[in-house]
Each structure stands twice: as structure tokens, then as C-alpha cells.
Design a protein around this nucleic acid. Structure first.
Lengths: 340, 340
DNA sequence: TTGTAGGCGTTATCAT
DNA sequence: ATGATAACGCCTACAA
């Protein structure tokens, strides 16, 4: 199959009877070209089925109109929502998303980042603050602007858009404390390589400490995020350190798993046990009696990261830190401690 | 900020004391170069922090090592899983994913496809068979190999990896018929621009017709995929055309919504009402009593699409149609019709 | 407003 | 095994 070569801009120019330069301008700077020549060029484009050659354009302009994103498992619903919103935001500005995902693995993240930089990403979106030092160094050296999402740099040195996981977690814990709970268990996300999970756990400890309480290690279990692991984690806690009246889930799937397991064991929620989540996925509001959780505006985070990057590429300055609200959403899984 | 220009391969060559050509070979065809010169080049690379310029490489090789995917909302968990699997598969082969998503909008899909082709995608992944005719024509003209996912081309003319939604849907319906159900309602996905949703609905009708039954229009409602819409759809059906003993959901979220609404109304499932879904998302197995559904191997579809594309780019032939199994998973939401 | 020509950073084809 | 050099397709001063 000979597969005749795609038409180049020169072919368009010839067909339109103009010079290469004019054809180029007609496409990229339309109003620097006379009305009729412009339309001649456009006709030629349509006729030949011309598609610009991005690599050539990128080589000449040093811009790819591409933004790279390196995300942990995109199949986590919150990242999926952010990815979609980001892609949409970029598309609206003529940019395209280069996506790489990894399984909470800093080395894979570094490799992916390098791959995206090589592909010429004009900007990058990363998640969280846990990275190989080389990762950010690479971006700095290459002069690629980037945004950290979800988390916020405590030093306010790097551009971030996210929430304070710690203070949201403190609010959750205070809510339980206010309801009279003192014996609290935590099914945390895997904190290794995940600063958000760490901060959430730290927030629980902070809130307890503020009231002179502490969180015994036996009351904490770490599990990768999933409903199934929520069930398992809850079962383990029940065996290992029973007597708690509330469970704090590291995210909604974990909390929902705990809730389902409690239900399966005939434990009344919130009568005998309160449960909280984190993220506010759709199901949190739909599953009766409704999961008390923290609303993390994941889609907005994705969209905002895109907006900020586009603004910076356009030479506009944006505040280094963009903190989003993360309100506590009180629903039916939390209630006063039994016997109060 | 002057931002000194990134080092080019010529800088590396100079630092290593070799020619540009040799430096190039040392990096891309290591064993065409003597051991010691190769290591000299690598040192220079490390020293200068050299990162290859993808656009220049792409211009010269006419390959970007990039695969484009244009998906409907990536925040649907099944597409999210497929995206992740696809990205992983590609990364393993040194390829990167260019992702665009749209909201079941064929025009947006066409625009996205064009954007990815311009960016030089070496191959493309699309979803389903509903497209603007220009979309596939564009890919053909540009000579970009592509794979259709989820659905299968009835004509077996274009490369596909997916399942037969219609026959899976027939199996679901037969399962209900075998349980004695005759009054069946359907909460279908939005069939406009979504051939999978259409095929699933058609499958229900086929199965009924095979037993001399038909599906009254009042017993069918179409809703965009979501738990909330499952609830709404169920409520509407109940009001509009009560008397059914089974509900077929267009996907799992819709079915779960119907299930939750039924529970909220005190309708015993599966005692008085059977419910089925489609996809087998994680929650389908976790939510008691377990949702009867069809397992769609979404991650495998994504991975397989990647594999096939990589194989084709490597010049290997692959079967045009790759049909995956989509077994019926019988769980607790389906049972014999009441009073039998 | 339009045309001419040099350059963007690599790869690949020749020699050597 | 290595070096010189012509593409690759487009953009953009600069000139006209």
C-alpha cells in the first residue's frame, strides 16, 4: 500500500496560488491576510484535506499547545472527574491533554513526567506534594510551568490548587467529638507516597489532641482506597480493637465499605456507630441514610488547574496558592454517641 | 528571567567530543556505537540535563510515539478504568496517551479527533460506532490506524475490540424471563448518539420478541447514566406504568439508583422486584444483596486496544474483530417473580 | 498585503 | 564505528 503522503502547507499554497508564507498566515493569523486570498487558501485546505503538521509547527514555534498531566489511578472517581474537567477546559482553548497515570509510584511518576516533557508539554499538572526530587527539578530546568493539585504547598513556594486536607479532616473529627464520640477508629488510605492520606490522618490526631485525646495505633488501619478494603478494614478493626463508636474513612469508598460491612453485621448506623468519608462522590449522597463527608471539588480543581496554566502561558500572573473550600457535609451516617 | 535555552543534542555532542550524528545514534541506536563513546555521550547527557526535543524527533521520524484516545466522559467509572489501563499499556512500550473527552457529542468528538491527528497521534482509540462520517474519513485519509472500543462493527470492516451489547442484553432479559418475569420495565441510557445504549435496549426487545412478548413504550425511559437518574427514572416508571416485576438498568449506576429508590419505598428486592444492571462496577458486587449484571471487562478493553494498536504500528497483523466475553453475573437483586 | 529565506532540533543517508 | 549534510514541515523576521 503506497499511502500517498499527506499534503503539506506548500501544496495548499500552490493550489491557492499564493506563497507559503501567505498560506501560513491565512491559517494562523487570519486578519493579516486579505479576505479573498484567505478564502482561497481555505478552499485549498478543504480540497486537499490538509491537516497541519503539529511537530513541524511545534519545532518552529516552540509550543505544542499540549498540557501534560500525571495522575494516580485515573479510575479513582475523583481523579476521573478532574481529568474530564481539565480536558474540557483545555479543549476550549485549543489545547490538548497528554495524560499519564501511575499507581501511586513516585518512580513511575518521574518517568511519566520525563516522557511528557520530551513530548513538549507546555505546562504540567501533578497531584500532591510527594515526588521524587528530580521530578520538580526536571520541570524547573526545562522551564515548564506546573501546577500541583489537591494539596497545598505549606511553604507557598509552588503553584497549587487544592484544599487543606488536614483542616478538613480536623473539622470531620470535631464533628464527631461534638456528637460525643471519644472512641474513634480510622480506616486511612495508604499513606506511603500519598501526602493527602497522611494529612487526613494527621488531622484526626490533631483534633483529638486538641481535646486531650489520642488515637491508639490499634485503632488505625491503612488500606488502598476501595469499597472492598473498607469492608475488610472495618472487620479487622472490629476484631483488633472493638469498642469504638465512630469510624473515620480515608475517603468515601473506604467509608462506604465500612458502612456496608456494619450493615451486614446488623450494626445500626448511626444509632450505634457513626461513619464519615472524604470526597463526596455521587454515591455518598444517594446511599441511604447518606454519608457524612467532606466535599472535595475535584472537577473544579481540574478545571482550575487548567485555567491557571493557560493564564500563565498567556503571560498573566496568578496567585501562587489557590485554596478551594472543602465543606463538611453532614448526612445520615453520623449521630450522637449511643446512650447520650 | 532570561531562562537559558535547553541544551540541544549538538551541545551534548560537543561536550562528549563526538559528532552530532554519533550522539544521536548513541541515544537511539546504542549498539551501533562503541561502548566507551556511548558512555561519554551518556555522561554528557546527564551533565547537561539534556532532554530530547520530541517535536524535532517527530519531524524527522514522522512518529510521535503518542496514541490518541477520544472518550465520552472519562468520569464514568468504566471509561476511567479503560483509560488507566490504556495509559499503562502504552507507557510500557514508551508511548504516551493523548486524551480528549466529550459529553456524548459527535461534533466535539470530530473536533477532538482532528486535534489529536494534528498533534501527530500515531494511532487512535475511539468509543463505539456512532460518529460523524468525517471522523473516520479523517483518520483514513491521514493514514492513522485506529481501534473502535466497546462496540463491534457488524460489518467487521473496521478494527474493534469490545463486546456484543445486544447479545449480553438478551442474556439478561432471558434470565428474567426464565425467572417468570413478564412485566418488565427498562431504564435505558440515553440512546441518542450512543450505540451501546441502543443495542442494549434492542437486546431487551429481541429477547421479549423471541417469546412473543413486547416492550410497551411506557415501560421504557431514557436517562443519562447516573445513580440519581436511576432513582428518578424508577420513580417515573412507577407512576407512569406500574405493575412491572423487573427493571432492567442500562448500566450499573442506573440500576443501583433504581434499587435504592425501591428500597426507600419499602419495595422488597428481589422479593417483589428484580433489578439488573450492566458493566459490573465494583459497587455492584459490594452493595447487598449484590446486583445482577453483565460483566464488561472495561480495563481489558482499554489494555487490548493499546496492545493491538502497538502491534499494528509494529507492522503485525491483528484480527479485525476482537470480541471479549461479557458474562452474566447473577447476584441477589434478581429472583423468581412474586407468587410463583 | 505578500513573498523570500533562514532556522527550529533530530534523524537518516551517504561517505569515510 | 564515526562524520558531514540534506531532509522533515512550518513559522517569522525582513524585504518588497
Amino acid at each position: 500500500m503506497p499511502a500517498k503522503p499527506s499534503p503539506r502547507l506548500a501544496d495548499v499554497a500552490r493550489a491557492a496560488g499564493v506563497s507559503l508564507a501567505t498560506a501560513s498566515r491565512a491559517l494562523s493569523e487570519p486578519d493579516m491576510v486579505r479576505e479573498d486570498t484567505r478564502s482561497r487558501v481555505q478552499e485549498a485546505v478543504a480540497m486537499l484535506g490538509y491537516v497541519p503538521h503539529g511537530a513541524a509547527r511545534a519545532l518552529a514555534t516552540r509550543r505544542t499547545r499540549t498540557i501534560g498531566a500525571v495522575f494516580p489511578p485515573v479510575d479513582n472517581p475523583i481523579f476521573a472527574g478532574a481529568t474530564h474537567a481539565l480536558a474540557q477546559e483545555l479543549a476550549g482553548a485549543g489545547y490538548t491533554l497528554l495524560l499519564a497515570s501511575h499507581d501511586y509510584d513516585a518512580d513511575a511518576e518521574l518517568a511519566a513526567t520525563r516522557a511528557l516533557v520530551e513530548r513538549g508539554a507546555d505546562g504540567m499538572v501533578l497531584v500532591g506534594l510527594d515526588h521524587r526530587p528530580e521530578t520538580l527539578a526536571l520541570l524547573e530546568r526545562a522551564g515548564v510551568p506546573y501546577e500541583i493539585t489537591w494539596a497545598l504547598d505549606p511553604g507557598a513556594m509552588i503553584h497549587c490548587v487544592g484544599i487543606s486536607h488536614r483542616s478538613a479532616s480536623i473539622r470531620v473529627t470535631q464533628h464527631l467529638l461534638d456528637l460525643g464520640h471519644r472512641e474513634i477508629a480510622v480506616i486511612a488510605g495508604d499513606t506511603r507516597g500519598n501526602d493527602r492520606a497522611r494529612e487526613r490522618l494527621a488531622g484526626v490526631k490533631d483534633a483529638l489532641a486538641a481535646r486531650g485525646l489520642r488515637l491508639p495505633a490499634r485503632r488505625v488501619i491503612e488500606m488502598p482506597f476501595s469499597v472492598a478494603n473498607g469492608r475488610k478494614g472495618f472487620a479487622t478493626l472490629l476484631k483488633r480493637a472493638p469498642g469504638f463508636t465512630a469510624v473515620i474513612g480515608g475517603n468515601d469508598p473506604l467509608a462506604i465499605g465500612a458502612f456496608l460491612e456494619a450493615q451486614a453485621r446488623g450494626i445500626d448506623v448511626p444509632g450505634r456507630l457513626s461513619i464519615t468519608g472524604f470526597d463526596d462522590i455521587e454515591l455518598a449522597g444517594e446511599l441511604p441514610p447518606g454519608l457524612t463527608t467532606v466535599r472535595v471539588p475535584s472537577a473544579e480543581i481540574g478545571r482550575e488547574a487548567g485555567k491557571r496554566l493557560l493564564a500563565r502561558l498567556a503571560g498573566k500572573a496568578v496567585p501562587v496558592i489557590r485554596e478551594m473550600a472543602a465543606p463538611l457535609i453532614v448526612r445520615g451516617t453520623t449521630g450522637p454517641v449511643a446512650g447520650k
